[in-house]
Design a protein around this nucleic acid. Sequence first.
DNA 1: TATTGTTATACTCTATAACTATA
DNA 2: TATAGTTATAGAGTATAACAATA
Lengths: 188, 188
Amino acid sequence: MSSVPTPTPPRDVAHACAADDVAIDADLGWALGVVFRSYLKIAHHAMSEVPGGPRGYQVLAAAIHGQQNTQLALANQLGIDRTVMTYLIDDVERAGLVERQPDPADRRARRIVVTLDGHALLARLQERLKLAEDHVLAALDEDERTGFRTLLRRIATHADAADPARSPCEVVDDVAKITGTEPPRHPR
Amino acid sequence: MSSVPTPTPPRDVAHACAADDVAIDADLGWALGVVFRSYLKIAHHAMSEVPGGPRGYQVLAAAIHGQQNTQLALANQLGIDRTVMTYLIDDVERAGLVERQPDPADRRARRIVVTLDGHALLARLQERLKLAEDHVLAALDEDERTGFRTLLRRIATHADAADPARSPCEVVDDVAKITGTEPPRHPR
DNA sequence: TATTGTTATACTCTATAACTATA
DNA sequence: TATAGTTATAGAGTATAACAATA
């Protein structure tokens, strides 16, 4: 999607831009893509001053209330590869937003602690992201926004709980029905 | 998506996988990312048998009711670079799903026409995508789904109309307010 | 001179594997 | 032997520029 993306998305995925074609815009995937990319475009712009863009922001946000502050813990939480995390934190640290500190309990690990500058920047970014949300929801009135947020959050919570990345087996059969393919025989 | 940023987007944005962190899951971007990636994961799987994946599907879908069937027209509609479109159609054509036919009105252009096999595959994919939508919306009952689709479509239509890719100037000032940056002085 | 489609090249991301220092 | 972090290398995807054919 990002797909995004595309989706980015992703990039990937989440990535291809949607058509403004009438016959397609009835479908959920198209609408999700347009809305998500619309949010991402603004959010990405808003986060352009933190090194690593959205990824850097996520690291800041995750590290700030972290019980689990090591690089690997952050990487797992955010779904970022640990080798990428190294470069990412290199950049964020160079910008003075976080510091690598030795973990007193494990000399292999580094605790990522957010500096004062990091706190200040994060607060500013979060304000901007709220405005970005309002911008995305501009077509709805107050009550509709609340309703939409509630429904979306329920869908997201449900989807997140079933995310194959964390609980593969539950979803496999479901996906198999949808795609018409045989479920893989648990190569993990 | 994480991506998404992403969450995407993400590739990418739209790319990084979302945290299951409580403090973050209140925000709209996170929820959008999770839901969009959840859809993409299934949709991507469902479209794995068409060359080029989701992109190949989009080409099929766009070409099938196309008044504008040339490669460049499809590329513009889908937001795909025209050089990528060449490779993409190479693959889709090799699979026997479309054919390149000379445009009688312009000998430089090629019309992309969907074959019988292409029609059949597209129909099958669209059935699967409907099931993928139901899977994403599994947390909602029938009335809630209708409500969610309606609201989402309104947001998407609004966002699509304001998409900078097609009408840059309208959004610039709005974005500038949000990001706190000066609007660029129309480099285009 | 501009446009459609193709090809070649370079650049960005990501994934994989190796290496170190610790456990 | 396994784990946290780092580094180097290779691959996929994308963008840029140049080219031939046609307008």
